[in-house]
Amino acid sequence: MTRNIHPVLIALTVLVFIFLVGPLVIVLGAALSDTSYLTFPPQGLSLRWFENIFKIEAFRRTIVTSLEIAFLSTGIALLVGVPAAYALNRYRIQLPGWLSTLFILPVLVPELVLGFSLLKNVATQFHAPIFVSLVLGHSLLVLPYVVRVISASLAAFDFSIEEAAISLGSPRLKTFFTILLPNVRSGVIAAFILAFITSINDVSISIFLTGPGISTLPIQILAHMEQFFDPTVASVSVLLMGLTVAVMAAVERTLGLTFFAK
């Protein structure tokens, strides 16, 4: 199958994949080091830097905040995004083309601009609590993923099944929950997971919306790095990489990882 690929190209590809994976392996090694400074390969193996994460109150608090925001914003995005994706697929002919563009707008507008605008024109102007502004910002951030993933699984759905249920007397809402939702279940799970990890990893929106007492994990990592250069950050990074692995396993089981190469 490996048809006519020049050996130079293969060598280059190997280098590229070392380049892609190597830095993350280094982070893992640095996290396991028993030293009080960052080093690779690790000198002595220790899990004490992982313990250290939970000894620092700011990390404990921001991990909880980040999880709360990720759950809430993903929930909101699913609540508004699933009906929108359904409408875009089911009533495609009746709806104008710009409507689908509207839902990917959060990708086009730079995240920094969205974060700053929410701070300036929502949080400050209308005295909206910072937490609420963060949740709103993250809901917008993840909405395009939700709409895109759900649309992809709805594209494979045969709407005549739904029609059949309705014509046989099933109420619309019941049809939605018993016919449509089970058929796009894997899409909903994948959308949830991708939205969740996107929210957890966000910096550019959150950086403007961290007020007194409220911060998210990535922002706390940045703040910690400014003061300390110990392996704690490497350990937090490894925890986040563990989350990535879990996410990939879940996506593989629902959409298949080739989803990313489409």
């Binding site: 892609l20 990535p218 986040l240």
Partner: peptide, 8 residues
Amino acid sequence: FPLLTGVV
């Protein structure tokens, strides 16, 4: 894997 790992 790197794509889903955060920018920080």
